[in-house]
Structure formats: structure tokens, C-alpha cells
Computed example of a mutant assay.
Amino acid sequence: MADKDAYISALEQKLAELSGTEVDQVKKNQLANAADEARVIGEMAAYVASITVQRAAEAQVGLVSPQIADIYSYINAELSEARGAHVLPPLKYDYDALEPHISGTIMEIHHTKHHQAYINNLKAATDKLIEAEQNNDVNAMNALLPAIKFNGGGHLNHTIFWTNMSPNGGGEPSGSVADAINAEFGSFQAFKDKFSAASVGVKGSGWGWLGYCPKNDKVAVATCQNQDPLQLTHGLVPLLGLDVWEHAYYLQYKNLRADYVKAFFNVIDWSNVNERYENARKAAGH
């Protein structure tokens, strides 16, 4: 109980300034605990604020990274949100509905604190991006990419994660996604083993994914560091994502990430995964 109280206290104190994460620290991928994560979450806000947009007459022109538009496009496809109009999506179940596999306390903090932090910082970065666009300051636009990628990815990834789970989840998939899994991995158990090993093996903070490749019409297991969007990183449409940042499990599972990954399979909403798979194939023309 003392560990739990200390953990929650650290989160509440450090996340009071809800922001994003400092770029160099993200690249180093050294978020060791909730307090460290909360600290770097606050530092991204300072990073965004430090970017100075030049007046139109002084701005330097050039090529804007296409990844900026891509990230907003992925968010719009998932949430139908216009750029900058980002809000915390409600869960379709109560915070304690996934117990005993994922505690209600984790779910509440994760949703209302962590996810909200990414949204707050994405909106701040978007405001600065719009200012840079109005002044045609390409340098400032590109300087904002790490913040937009991290916080936009955090918003997108968590939104998918919430829908991938259900109080009535678990078991094995059915429908066309089950056929795709069997075709690619040989069996559901073989997929489960590969997905689990990949997720447990993420170095530092990141995500484990089952994604769909539109080019070869196959599913694949992949991982991403930090909050990097799957589609931007690997060209895969996200079907099933597992958050393996420590804030997603440490309160309940401590450093036993493998136990958390195992428990996740008890709450997977395979109907949601199957729907995502069918929509992705249809969009790809298969």
C-alpha cells in the first residue's frame, strides 16, 4: 500500500503541469519510473514554448516534413478530429471493469493524466505550428515535428489501446483476422508467443503491435519506441496495440512486464481487432 500511495503521489504531483516530453530524453529512452516520466513530460512543454516563430519577412523557407501532415491524418482517420481539435475520448467501460487484469487505479491515472497530457501538448504544438505556417517559417514547423510526433502519437496510440480492450475480452480471435493470424504465424499460440516476446523485449518505453500491411495483404508483429506511430514507423495499419511504458503496469505488476503482457490477453477485444482488420483491407482494396 505504501508503494501504491507513493506512486500515485508522484504522478499527481509531477503530472500537475501536464505536457509532453523532452526530445533528447525521448531519444535516449531512459524513462525509469513514474517520477522521471512526469519530469520529462513537463520538459516538452518548455521545448515547444522555446521555439520562436520568425516574422514572415525574416522566416527561412524550405521543405516541410511530410510526417507532420501524416500524423494529423492518422489522428483524423481514427478520431475524425480536425487538426488542433483534440479531446480525450471517453472509455466504453468503467475504469475498474478490466480488473483483476488491469487495475482501476491504473486505468484512471493512465486515461485522465497520461493521455490527457499528450492531448494538451499536441494542442500547444499545433497552435505554434499554425503560427509558423502563417509566417511561412519552415524551420519552426520542422522544429515542432518531434513534439507533434510524440504527443500526436501518444494521443493516437492510447485511443487505439482503449478500444482494443473490453471487460468481456480475451480468448481467441474469430473471423477474418483469425484466418490472417493463422496464415501468417501458423496458429494463434504462435502469434501470441511472438507478440508477447516482442512486447516484453521493447527496450525502455514503447509499444507492441499487431499491424496490417496494405502492400502484401498480411498481418505482422512490430514494436515502436516511445510514442512513435506504427503507420509512420513501419507502414503498418494498427490493429492491436499494447502500451509497455511503465506507467501502464508498474503500479500493479512492478517490474514484471511479462506478467502484464500475459494479463493483457485476458482483456483483448478481438471483435474490435477484427473490425479494424476488415476496414484496413477494404481501404487497401483487398
Results as ranks from 00 to 15, higher is better:
A125N: 12
T126R: 00
D127S: 10
D127L: 08
L129M: 14
L129F: 04
I130W: 04
A132D: 03
N135W: 00
N135A: 11
N136V: 02
D137F: 03
D137T: 02
N139S: 03
I148D: 04
K149A: 10
G152S: 04
G152A: 08
G153M: 07
G153C: 02
G154I: 00
L156C: 09
L156R: 02
L156S: 13
F161N: 08
N164P: 01
N164D: 15
N164F: 00
G169W: 00
P173D: 14
V177N: 06
D179G: 15
A183I: 11
F185D: 06
Q189P: 02
Q189D: 12
Q189T: 10
A190M: 10
K194Q: 12
F195G: 03
A197S: 14
V200P: 00
G208E: 08
W209T: 13
K215S: 11
N216D: 14
A220R: 11
V221F: 09
A222R: 12
A222F: 10
C224L: 15
C224G: 12
C224D: 14
Q231F: 03
G235H: 12
G235K: 12
V237R: 00
V237A: 08
P238F: 10
L239K: 04
G241K: 06
D243R: 01
E246T: 09
E246D: 14
Q252D: 12
Y253D: 04
N255M: 06
A258E: 07
D259F: 00
A263V: 04
F264P: 05
